[in-house]
């Protein structure tokens, strides 16, 4: 599956041109080793004083019952672009040093890892906020669709209004 790695320079006036932001976005069926990924992100951004990460998991039960599998469909081509756009928006808004995003697709079993978003920055606030921001945007703008399969049969997961509200809060002035 497609992996994109690139470096670019902050557009923010206060940012130093000598500090490129490390971005690495992947969409893949394979599982990932979170410890390994964080170690790599840390190594890629040695100036970092903060590293924050979020890992989303397949719940073993949904409102409908016990889950045996979750199938994640996506829109190849658009998915990668959408994730890159979200990562770029975050780097424009916070002084980040590095971003690592991985989203899995295909058939996953209960408790599997689905998504990793990790950020590094000089100080913790940027890394914390940017990580939450990227998850809120990923939930509402990246073209993934989950289908739950279990003792209840199978059904598509419905989008939640609370996810949209979570994204909207980032649009309000602080």
């Amino acid at each position: 599956m497609k992996t994109t790695k690139w470096r670019f320079f902050h557009l923010l006036p206060e940012a130093k041109l000598s500090e490129p932001v490390y971005l690495n976005v992947s969409v893949q069926p394979e599982d990932f080793d979170t410890g390994h990924e964080l170690k790599q992100l840390k190594a890629a951004t040695p100036q970092a004083g903060a590293l924050v990460n979020f890992v989303g998991l397949v719940r073993e039960a949904s409102a409908s019952g016990h889950l045996s599998e979750m199938v994640i469909e996506h829109y190849p081509g658009m998915t990668e672009k959408a994730l890159q756009k979200i990562a770029l928006q975050a780097t424009e808004r916070w002084p980040l040093l590095g971003v690592r995003m991985i989203h899995r697709v295909g058939t996953l079993t209960a408790q599997s890892q689905i998504v990793l978003v990790a950020t590094t920055s000089l100080h913790r606030q940027a890394a914390f906020e940017a990580c939450a921001f990227m998850m809120d945007y990923l939930k509402t703008e990246a073209p993934f669709w989950k289908k739950e399969i279990g003792d209840f049969g199978e059904h598509w997961v419905e989008a939640r209004a609370s996810d949209e509200q979570a994204k909207q809060q980032w649009k309000q002035p602080k």
Binding site: G56, H74, H103, I114, M135, K139, E141, P143, F144, W156
Partner: peptide, 10 residues
């Protein structure tokens, strides 16, 4: 052009 339901990733 693509048509799809509201997204549910993450």
């Amino acid at each position: 052009v693509a048509f799809f339901p509201p997204v549910t990733g993450g």
